[in-house]
Design a protein around this nucleic acid. Structure first.
Length: 566
RNA sequence: CGGGGUGUAGCGCAGUUGGUAGCGCGCUACGUUCGGGGCGUAGAGGUCGCCGGUUCGAGUCCGGCCACCCCGACCA
């Protein structure tokens, strides 16, 4: 392709809208164009890269026996009502009506239609296992699209679904898919970390996310440098310190005028925060829930939401707290009646806690579980944080922001049971099909790859996903010798099967070099009067600063060699 | 949905007390220059986000709306 022919232009000035590196570089290089919030057009360079990513995904999926299919993006809403997901997805689901006012949805994912298709085509254990996938457009009305292609409302996604006879089969499919994902990231130049993830209210038991550490990411990853444990902060567990054993003291009241927060209580009474219990009030589908957690810890709302099985969880309003007869700032579960009470298991790790006295300006000393209070449920609902110790090896955990570049779920039988997808086992008994689901966003992978691979001057494309492999730069194209040599080289490079973008514009050297650095193809070849005087051209990798002079006849070989070694 | 910000040429921006809209980049033509965004001359390019109001007159003042960006909440 010639630079004078290609559709799309690089920008000289920084796009004002873009803050994250990949967004800025995608706009500046003229690869994408925004149409509306979270909706983008892809120009030829971006599209070539996206197709390369898709093909890598196809190759890896096919290698484990995945079969590519194609599902509709438009679904009848009743299908989503049947599994309850229309309600669960809420406003994220794009909905519309057809001319007869029948409700439809623009599909955000495809568990339902895949399950139905399998229901129609799988009847026996002999038809299993299967792994099906598609690469197709998804629609999600995200509350806040951001970061260019990082979070958008319309995007191409590879979604795969596994269908097995039992949990053991699912485990095999799941492991195979995990390996597929690792291969994909490695080929795309992404050091993604496999992390334990929350599977959501409808997901099954096991779930992992693949997270690329990056400042621009939206997720928080907790990593153990000691043993490699990695988990999304939504789900991570950590060691809660254990207080030294001490004899139980009787409860006694203490006057604490104006003291409300845990910090104030600990400071006023001269105790550590882990010697206090904190009361937090949530509204779970409108019902006030009383949470008790040790003062040094915070509530993980995802864990709490999963525990309570509620659709909507939020902090209770002041009105709701008062209405429930609770005293904010001096509340505790001691003597609590008529309100659902949940506690973090940290209440067992210590004794003689300071708690609220349930009347303003007073606290209680020497509160002990279960002598003085007994919550309805005790579970791990604490937020793991940086500096907490790893559950497995005790090393302090590190926190990193990251981009979720893939998510795998063990779904179990939720969808097969709600939609009636079953098979006959070899005893002739009906069994629900056991499912897994696996997703990768193609555009997010591209932007993540750029987040990971760029420098001050521009993109440094990993070779497998670069729109072109070679940028051929001719300086002084008006010079007939340069034009002739560059044309000849261009032909020979293409004949050798290399993908070349030939910069045949009459621009100055600075413009061309800056554009070459911005676009960031792996190999740059420079033809100029200076090089031609030595019968040579210059060959250089984008990620290296030093070029080498190579005889014109050897340039094609050198370019191939560099690409293979890269 | 809460908080903050921005809408003027393809991109980046200026526009004073209200008086018929400007700069840089890019684009077109010509000339010059030629190894890291060179220079000159001449051009083309605008419903000033939208609607309403005030006024002789609104990019500018007032009211309403819309869009986009950032932080947070949310995210099967």
């Amino acid at each position: 392709m010639r630079m004078t022919s290609i559709f799309g232009k690089t920008l000289r000035e920084e796009p004002a809208e873009a803050e994250t590196a990949s967004h800025r570089l995608l706009l500046k290089s003229g690869m994408i164009r925004q149409v509306a919030s979270g909706i983008y057009s892809y120009l030829p360079l971006a599209w070539r890269s996206l197709r390369k990513i898709e093909n890598i995904i196809r190759q890896e999926m096919d290698a484990v026996g995945g079969q590519e299919v194609r599902m509709p993006a438009l679904h009848p809403r009743e299908l989503w009502d049947e599994t309850g997901r229309a309600e669960a997805m809420g406003q994220t689901l794009f909905t519309l009506q057809d001319r007869r006012e029948r409700p439809l949805v623009m599909a955000p994912t495809h568990e339902e239609v895949f399950t139905l298709m399998v229901k129609a085509n799988v009847h026996s254990y002999r038809d299993l296992p299967r792994i099906l996938y598609q690469i197709q457009t998804k629609f999600r009305d995200e509350a806040r699209p951001r970061g260019g292609l990082l979070r958008v409302r319309e995007f191409d996604m590879k979604d795969a679904y596994s269908f097995d006879v039992d949990a053991e089969g699912l485990a095999r499919s799941y492991d195979a898919m995990v390996q597929v994902y690792k291969n994909i990231y490695s080929r795309c130049g992404l050091p993604a970390v496999q992390a334990e993830a929350d599977s959501g209210a409808i997901g099954g038991k096991d779930s992992h996310e693949f997270i690329l550490p990056a400042e621009s990411g939206e997720d928080v990853l907790l990593l153990c440098p000691g043993c490699g444990y990695a988990a999304n902060a939504e789900r991570a567990e950590s060691v809660k310190s254990v207080q030294a054993e001490e004899a139980l003291l009787p409860m006694s009241e203490v006057h604490t005028p104006g003291v409300k927060t845990i910090d104030d209580v600990a400071a006023f009474l001269g105790v550590s925060k882990s010697n206090t219990l904190k009361a937090v009030f949530y509204a779970c589908d409108g019902q006030v829930v009383f949470i008790t957690i040790r003062g040094d810890l915070d509530v993980n709302e995802i864990k709490l939401k999963n525990l309570l099985h509620c659709k909507e969880l939020r902090l209770a309003t002041d009105g709701e707290v008062e209405g429930a007869g609770l005293v904010a700032g001096s509340a505790s579960a001691v003597g609590l009646k008529g309100i659902r009470s949940v506690a973090d298991d940290s209440i067992k790790l210590g004794a003689n806690f300071v708690v609220g006295a349930n009347r303003p300006d007073y606290h209680l000393l020497g509160a002990n579980y279960p002598r003085d209070f007994e919550p309805d449920v005790i579970a791990d609902i604490a937020l793991a944080q940086e500096g907490h110790d790893c559950r497995r090896c005790g090393t302090p955990l590190e926190a990193k922001r990251g981009i979720e570049v893939g998510h795998v779920f063990k779904l179990g039988t939720f969808f097969s049971e709600s939609l009636g997808a079953s098979y006959l086992d070899n005893d002739g008994a009906q069994q629900p099909i056991v499912m897994g689901s696996y997703g990768i966003g193609v555009g997010r992978l591209l932007s993540a790859a750029i987040e990971q691979n760029h420098d001050q001057k521009g993109i440094v494309f990993p070779k497998a996903i670069a729109p072109y492999q070679v940028q051929l730069v001719a300086l002084n194209v008006e010079n007939p010798q340069v034009a002739e040599a560059a044309e000849d080289l261009y032909q020979r490079l293409e004949q050798a099967g290399l993908e070349v973008l030939y910069d045949d514009r009459s621009e100055t050297a600075g413009v061309k070099f800056n554009d070459a650095d911005l676009l960031g193809f792996p190999v740059r070849i420079v033809v100029s009067p200076r090089n031609l005087n030595q019968g040579s051209a210059e060959v250089k990798l984008r990620r290296e600063s030093e070029a080498q002079l190579v005889g014109l006849e050897d340039v094609v070989g050198k370019a191939k060699e560099l690409l293979e070694a890269d």
